[in-house]
Amino acid sequence: MKIENAQGKNVQSMVLGDVEVIRVVEWQGPLVPARRFVPQSTAEMWKDNEDWLAPDHWHPGSDNAVVALQSWVLRSGGRTVLIDTNVGNGRERPGSPHFHHWQGDFLGRLAEAGVRPEDVDVVVNTHLHIDHVGWNTRSAGNTAGSGAEWVPTFPNAEYLIPAADDFHYGPENGYGNGRSEDDRLLYEDSIAPIHRAGLAVRWEGSHRIDEHLTLEPAPGHTPGSSVLRLASGADRAVFVGDLIHSPVQVLHPSCNSCFCLDQEQAAASRRRILERAAAERELVVPAHFGGAGALEVRKEGGGFGLAGWAAYDEA
């Protein structure tokens, strides 16, 4: 596994052991004020690391964090596994202005990667937030929004859904315990149709996908927030979802994002995952990092430091 700087492209790939890893980027850019994004961070944390945070992770001029909307495709054991499905087009998300009626070209980007919807065997939702489950479904006709009929985008796939999140965000818990209208809308257009189609697999404890890939819980960001571990040959990687939103949280793992529901539990999960990644030289693959999108970490003081960015094969 070679680690070096890499410039962003829409589709990139690397091989870890016997698993091909394909990064599919739908969008990347400045999105949220940095200290609103990571409220426990300080201006100094960003400024002191400007030389490597900018421009891929922080835009100093606007003081906005840079965010990527992306998914990861794993070709493992003869099957195609898709990790997270971004925002989805034409969704009613009134509480999330950035994503309300979003229109992107996610399926076109998957096609660039050589992946058709019917080719996907497994969909992994690391957690049930709006920017991770949107393309679970698509409109059955030409309509979107409140009048749409939503059907599974990946008709041949099993969808692996953390049971704790399915309960929390579903009708059993009053759609996120009544936290927001977006939670109800998310469940009804992106999760409930998967259940109705008989494609949903609720898992808890841990879930082995194949000899190389295993899902494990890492709660805090959401009740069912999870990570996917890859182990093949001498190579290791951990796809951490939203456990880490910004490299600032690698340097200061006690800092949570503004989206973490259980702050104490999220920080504990983050430190635990980073401790193991540093000890075992796992490539850390967060859901929203710009630039190379993935990194190796090392222990450094009371936190962790950058050991190197992911490198991709030449196109």
Rank of each mutant, 00 (worst) to 15 (best):
P193E: 03
L186M: 15
L185E: 00
L230V: 05
Y169K: 01
R208V: 11
N177V: 09
I191M: 06
A192P: 00
Y175F: 15
H207E: 12
P223N: 08
I209R: 06
T222S: 14
A218E: 10
H168C: 04
T222L: 09
S226E: 08
A218K: 10
H195A: 08
D183F: 08
H221K: 11
A192R: 11
G198A: 02
G174H: 05
E204A: 14
G174D: 10
G198E: 04
V227P: 05
G170F: 06
L213W: 07
G170R: 07
G198V: 12
H221G: 05
S226M: 06
Y175V: 10
H207A: 12
R229A: 04
I194E: 08
A231C: 04
E188W: 08
R179P: 00
A197P: 03
V201P: 02
N173F: 15
A192Q: 13
P193C: 02
G205H: 11
P219M: 02
E216M: 13
A200Q: 06
W203P: 15
H207Y: 15
G178L: 07
I209C: 08
H195W: 09
A231Y: 06
L199W: 01
L228D: 03
L230K: 06
Y187P: 09
P217C: 05
H195E: 13
A231P: 00
E204W: 09
T214A: 13
L213D: 10
D183T: 03
I209Q: 05
S180D: 00
R196W: 04
R196C: 02
R202D: 12
S206F: 15
E204P: 01
R196S: 08
